[in-house]
Nucleic acid binder design. Sequence first.
DNA 1: TCTAATTCTTGTACGCGATCTATTTATTCC
DNA 2: GGAATAAATAGATCGCGTACAAGAATTAGA
Lengths: 191, 191
Amino acid sequence: MAGRPRASSQRMLEEAASELFLEQGYAKTTIEQITRRAGVSRNTFFNYFPGKADLLWVELDASRAVLTDALAAAPASTDPLAAVEAALVTTAAALTPGRAPLVLTQWEVMGIDEELKAAGLARALAHAGVVEAFVLGRGLDALTARGIALAVVGAASAAVGRWAADGPERAPLETYLQKVVHPVLSGFGIG
Amino acid sequence: MAGRPRASSQRMLEEAASELFLEQGYAKTTIEQITRRAGVSRNTFFNYFPGKADLLWVELDASRAVLTDALAAAPASTDPLAAVEAALVTTAAALTPGRAPLVLTQWEVMGIDEELKAAGLARALAHAGVVEAFVLGRGLDALTARGIALAVVGAASAAVGRWAADGPERAPLETYLQKVVHPVLSGFGIG
DNA sequence: TCTAATTCTTGTACGCGATCTATTTATTCC
DNA sequence: GGAATAAATAGATCGCGTACAAGAATTAGA
């Protein structure tokens, strides 16, 4: 079980894409331009990313694992909704340092449009799936579980979006997050 | 003010598309097939729809106007969050009769994938924009307004989704809606 | 009735994203 | 030094969406 080792193509592609998106915008950047700058062939791109839009959400995809772990680490004795809130804060903290998705902080210069927001929402849906599975496991009914999941992820999206829009002189992301996430969970019965 | 009258192309296209989606699925249906069955040219399609995915969400797009009107009709004296809840119920009622988006009830046979769900959520984002504008006009701050909007629309999406999944033998949509929408608004301070 | 203005409709071409199949190159294990 | 394995490339094709130009149908007004 061996085979040809992966070159560092993934990172090269991400960096080349970031540069080009900032230089000339997302829509005007073609996959061929990205692969040429990265020094690989066009087809190699699809070995690493399902599509062009996925380049924008690498960090967000990674954060889903953080969310999953944070929820799994919650003791069974804690209130499930409190666990969700804590896990979201943990996830946001992992996103903050300098690893916020580029698309959030630079979306103006990149020229992000509706299609791109939809792609971002698809990612958020995946996060919601994680939350839904967790609260389902804690015994909530299907409707409530999905309602909580979508509502809380929606609120979190709002927090991240406002946080990114407010620029460098802003409160930490956790502050934004708790301001809107807590009311949602509170309404569903958190203490 | 004259010009060539519109043929009934829009309806024809919608019907042809619905048939083909049910027959062979969404992904395998090409725009050319749709236009051929509708008896028009391929270009005519783009005179009526921005893209293929828009065919699935015609009713949902229409419901946004209902939501807008329902919110505009709310007396200024009513609690804004109560007004949002009532407006959502009204909107859902307009969607119910037999006019639920086909994609909701038939999504299995159509073979809807992640991309399609994302397109649906993009529509929900538009609904959230309506809610956000309304509560902003009632004096809430930007973060709270967007948080409420995204959370409540997320909850409503969950309700509609579960309602559709539960099949014919189910409670009215309003029941589903209130079960998850009320807690969200309640958490944000509804009485 | 003829003309002009308006608007829907069509033809043609093209760029780009995405998929598929086959082939080549690089590496490890035997 | 071969197999075996997996990444990288090449070439072709499909389908969505856009752009531009030309044609056809209808009405308003002279």
